[in-house]
Design a protein around this nucleic acid. Structure first.
Lengths: 84, 84
DNA sequence: CTTGTATGAATGAACG
DNA sequence: CGTTCATTCATACAAG
């Protein structure tokens, strides 16, 4: 249920929403508002973390295997070539 | 130690007090004034949050379960309506 | 049993 | 000040 809310775009629900969700979850056990709050906090953070690691992996992969320079700006009038 | 200060009523200490506390805490590690400052700021904020959730829980409880024929809710300091 | 991992909780730091 | 973010701690559980 929490994940469905998350998928619907809810990231950092307001206290009101939190309490509403918590009250619906209470049928399954002792759920408090702060539990819901922590869930969203953690889920968002870990989603970001995952995304970050994913990007890092891609970049790393790219730097090691790839062929084209990453930030290759069109060169013009290069007079003296330097080693980088 | 910080909590004892807090319990004694210190909420937003002045720079002078902050530095005094920080200097006493330095024996335990690299404590700076801003660390003490953040501590009081966070502690106060989270104390309020807790209180807020407590109130919300009561309200929620009231709205959902306690359908006693009460006509007036003689509550004061109900932090229920916020921005819309 | 130990090792790895998922997750709730907590807290320092910082933003708007 | 209220809220959000990043990081860490602690624990439960799974894999080996």
């Amino acid at each position: 249920m929490l994940e469905s809310f998350y998928r619907q775009g809810i990231r950092t629900p307001r206290t009101e929403m939190i309490e509403k969700i918590a009250s619906r979850l209470k049928v399954y056990g002792h759920i408090e508002g702060k539990n819901v709050f922590y869930w969203f906090q953690n889920h968002k953070a870990r989603q970001r973390q995952k995304q970050k690691e994913h990007n890092m992996a891609n970049i790393s992969n790219y730097l090691h295997k790839a062929h084209q320079p990453v930030f290759a700006a069109p060169r013009r009038n290069v007079v003296h070539e330097e080693q980088v």
